[in-house]
């Protein structure tokens, strides 16, 4: 039965959408900024998968090239984000996102 089924690019895309949604949810429910960054990584990975799957569907290499740039951006974001965490943890005992609420109103 499975033999009749073909894996189309949409499968990947739906998986990608699911991964993106999981990442987004994680960012909303986790308090540890490091885990929140990881969730952003999940979201970016989901986009990567979309790019590659679209490229596959279109028969186009540009999708794969785009992934390179996403990778660079992800790396740069992580570096800066982690530096921020380091800087803040120098000054505060706890580093959860909920503690950052001096500024409000």
């Amino acid at each position: 039965m499975l033999a009749a089924v073909e894996v189309t690019s949409n499968w990947y895309l739906i998986l990608s959408a699911a991964l993106f949604a999981v990442g987004a949810m994680g960012l909303l429910i986790r308090r540890n900024p490091l885990v929140m960054f990881m969730c952003v990584e999940l979201m970016l990975n989901a986009v990567n998968l979309s790019f590659v799957a679209f490229g596959d569907r279109l028969g186009d290499i540009a999708g794969q090239v785009s992934v390179f740039f996403v990778l660079v951006v992800a790396a740069a974001e992580v570096v800066v984000g982690l530096a921020l965490v380091v800087a803040i943890s120098r000054r505060r005992a706890t580093t959860t996102a909920d503690d950052l609420s001096v500024l409000r109103g």
Binding site: L13, M43, L44, A46, V47, F54
Partner: peptide, 15 residues
């Protein structure tokens, strides 16, 4: 967070 959305948008438009 919003950049991820933006990028996903690019991916969909590319698709």
């Amino acid at each position: 967070f919003s950049s991820a959305f933006f990028l996903y948008g690019i991916a969909l438009i590319y698709g």
